[in-house]
Design a protein around this nucleic acid. Structure first.
Length: 736
DNA sequence: CCCGGTCGGT
């Protein structure tokens, strides 16, 4: 029995097929081919293939084209197998050529379809009106505009441009390659413009954001079908014109055009992105009336709409009610948690997906989970995903997935792994450069960040505003005033980027810390926008460092106005007074602080041990191992004292609305997390923690000493940047 | 018997 298909199709010389097939109606209903529609795995595919060989069907072009078609576009596609089949045929007919070109045009590497097209012509086979739509699609999908124009020349030579399918495919190809003039020319020259050609050109305009032109075509077209309406709604949605999108939807209903599944999905996207939750709810009840309430695509879109609008409970209850969840159901729910900063829930649901569902995660799943890993410093889970991706996607990992992995490593404290991923990437996007650049900046690797910036410019990448946030924050972390000024000018003059608050924030921080107050003030005056709390905040910090009492008072007033209930400004100002010996003013601020009833953001530190993320608050006793943790804390205090550590109590004010007690400083959340890390990991292991606020001075000094006493690398992420503690010192060189 | 345009998750 021929159980091995490779043996079956590999023999030389090549398969010579009879020039004509038996009547196709006989073939079409053949039981062996009917089996294909039920085939779900490569194994059964191979069995069916053997069947086809046994019954002699493999001597027909029809059966082979069906097999190739199935291998190349079914859910369990295996393009390599399709090519193997194809190569075994000596003189493929049109159908076979078309099928193999179509298979490649829909694959991950659509450019290969063009290679087959060239081979087809060289072999003397004549492309027909079925061939060109596939070839044009691959020119569009692979972005090969010159090749697209050459194919257009072929079409004209063969007089096939009057075929409606070829005609609309041409418009689509030009439009998707961004050549709207080309698309318009094809459209204008034709005398057989149908609804599809109109809609295709209209979509081309919409894609570029030219909604006025799109609207004009829409109004001018003789007949509109449901796809035309949907395309118009989608066009408005994609360029953020949600009101117009929803208005078009209402108009279509007034004209008694019945929305279909795609319409609903598109409208729900508009509701999700624009926050029109009331309309979303109305659409939901309308869907129920229409009996579409159990359509999985629609339910998935509803979950997305509810979760993006903050109603996670409604979203979750709909998610739980789905009997047969698909990968998108999982992705939207995980993505919803991630979007609303419910990172723990995102990771928990991801675990549940792996353990309790039969749905395999895909790249979008990871794109939704990785930012949550990054936020919680869940490095083990992030690494697991990396290994999984390498194993399951081999060398076809997308640029965005690699970028997301890189970002995760950088934010979890492993900048070396981030750089490794970066170097291994074949295609880098601007986002990839931005991620590695700001990663290096976050880790205080300033020279590296500036090197990377030069490198990306040399490779011809055009930096954007995010790039410059990375560059300028690198300069500000290292106090490189001259570089900061230079790059700020470069950004504005060379790259014509209007500075945003973030950029000014970096500059003010940099100038303030260097004591260049008049330059900082004149920069603030030059801004087109109102300074935000970050800008005043960094200036106030600078006032404290340089003991600028008078300026500090003015700056603090600005902060009080912006954030009346944030205690940070009061604390900084009282520190400034304290350091100037103005105790009356200190007392006055403290009273005010107590009167206003500040909303203090509780300090919270997370640490991952054995793939589980643990979170600790100040003086937290909720952890099951609390008793051991506090024993360890006491031991640490003793060791610190013996090493000559003196608590720096200048920032005790941070605890002003805590019940102040002896030892409060050693109960800051980062200390508890480190103590937990020390008792639950092997000696010598690196400890990684992530804190939601900035590390206080006292904890910073204590942690430096702890890294020496326990001989551990401690990598701490605070709200701003990373601190790598090692052998008693910190990578930030005490300047943060 | 294989052809075109809209549509969800970054």
């Amino acid at each position: 029995m021929l159980s091995s298909p490779t043996i079956a199709i590999a023999p030389a010389p090549l398969h010579v097929l009879p020039s004509t097939d038996p009547p196709y109606k006989l073939l079409q209903s053949h039981p062996s081919l009917a089996l294909l529609s039920k085939c779900r795995s490569t194994r059964t595919l191979k069995q069916i293939h053997s069947q086809i060989i046994k019954t002699g069907l493999h001597n027909t072009q029809f059966a082979l084209s069906k097999l190739i078609e199935f291998c190349s576009i079914s859910p369990c596609s295996d393009l390599a197998y399709a090519v193997l089949l194809f190569e075994s045929i000596e003189q493929p007919n049109h159908l076979i050529w078309n099928t193999v070109i179509r298979g490649h045009s829909l694959s991950d590497s659509p450019a290969l379809a063009i290679d087959f097209f060239v081979r087809m012509i060289v072999s003397g086979a004549v492309p027909n009106c079925y061939t060109f739509p596939f070839v044009l699609k691959s020119c569009a999908r692979s972005g090969l505009a010159p090749e697209g124009r050459q194919v257009h020349a072929h079409i004209l030579k063969r007089g096939l441009d009057s075929d409606v399918f070829v005609h609309s495919s041409l418009i689509s190809m030009y439009a998707q390659n961004g050549d709207l003039e080309g698309a318009r020319l094809v459209f204008d020259k034709s005398s057989h413009r149908d609804t599809v050609s109109f809609t295709t050109l209209m979509t081309g305009y919409a894609l570029k954001g030219y909604m006025d032109d799109a609207k004009k075509l829409f109004d001018d077209m003789p007949r509109r079908d449901i796809v035309s309406w949907n395309a118009m709604i989608a066009g408005f949605t994609q360029c953020g014109k949600f009101d117009e999108a929803l208005e078009t939807f209402r108009k279509m209903q007034r004209k008694n055009v019945l929305p279909n599944e795609s319409t609903i999905v598109t409208v729900l996207v508009a509701c999700a992105q624009s926050g029109h939750i009331e309309l979303g709810k109305w659409v939901h009840s309308w869907i129920k009336d229409q009996g579409m309430g159990s359509n999985l695509r629609i339910v998935n879109s509803l979950i997305d709409m509810y979760s993006k609008n903050g109603d996670l409970e409604k979203a979750r209850s709909m998610f739980d009610a789905i009997q047969e969840k698909d990968v998108i159901s999982w992705n939207v729910m995980i993505g919803g948690y991630n979007h609303m900063n419910h990172h723990r829930e995102a990771l928990e649901l991801f675990r549940e997906m792996l353990l309790q569902s039969h749905v395999k995660p895909n790249d979008v799943t990871f794109l939704n989970v990785l930012p949550s890993c990054a936020c919680l410093c869940a490095l083990d889970l992030g690494k697991w995903i990396h290994v999984y991706v390498d194993k399951n996607y081999k060398n076809c990992t997308s640029t965005s997935l690699s970028t997301s992995l890189m970002d995760m490593y950088a934010k979890c404290g492993n900048i070396v792994a981030a750089e490794q991923v970066f170097r291994s990437m074949e295609h880098k996007s601007l986002a990839s450069w931005n991620a590695i650049l700001s990663g290096s900046a976050m880790h205080g690797e300033v020279e590296r960040a500036l090197e990377l910036f030069d490198e990306m410019l040399n490779e011809g990448f055009e930096p954007d505003e995010i790039t410059f946030v990375g560059v300028l924050s690198a300069c500000s972390h290292a106090g490189l005033v001259e570089f900061g000024r230079k790059n700020f000018t470069l950004m504005v003059d060379e790259f014509k980027i209007t500075p945003q608050l973030h950029h000014y924030g970096c500059m003010i921080n940099l100038l303030g810390r260097a004591g260049l107050f008049s330059e900082a003030e004149s920069m603030i005056r030059s801004m087109d926008m109102e300074p935000d709390e970050a800008i005043w905040g960094s200036l106030l910090k600078a006032c404290r460092i340089h003991r600028q009492v008078q300026l500090g008072e003015t700056v603090a007033q600005n902060l009080f106005k912006l954030e009346p209930s944030n205690p940070g400004a009061y604390i900084l100002l009282s520190n400034i007074y304290a350091e100037a010996g103005r105790w009356d003013d200190v007392a006055r601020i403290r009273t005010r602080l107590n009167d206003v009833g500040m909303k203090k953001v509780p300090g919270c530190t997370s640490i991952e041990v054995n793939s589980v993320v643990h979170e600790f608050l100040v003086a937290d006793k909720a952890h099951p191992q609390s008793e051991q943790i506090y024993k360890m804390l006491a031991e640490i205090d003793g060791l610190l004292e013996r090493a000559g550590f003196e608590p720096d109590t200048t920032e005790v004010l941070y605890d002003i609305d805590e019940e102040w007690k002896e030892g409060a400083l050693s109960q800051h959340s980062e200390r508890i997390a480190i103590a937990f890390g020390l008792i639950s990991t092997k000696p010598g292991t690196t400890i990684r923690i992530a804190k939601n606020l900035r590390v206080c001075r006292n904890c910073h000094s204590a942690t430096k000493l702890m890294s020496k006493i326990f001989n551990r690398d401690i990598i701490a992420r605070d709200r701003n940047r990373f601190h790598h503690f090692r052998h008693g010192s910190c990578s930030c060189k005490d300047c943060w």
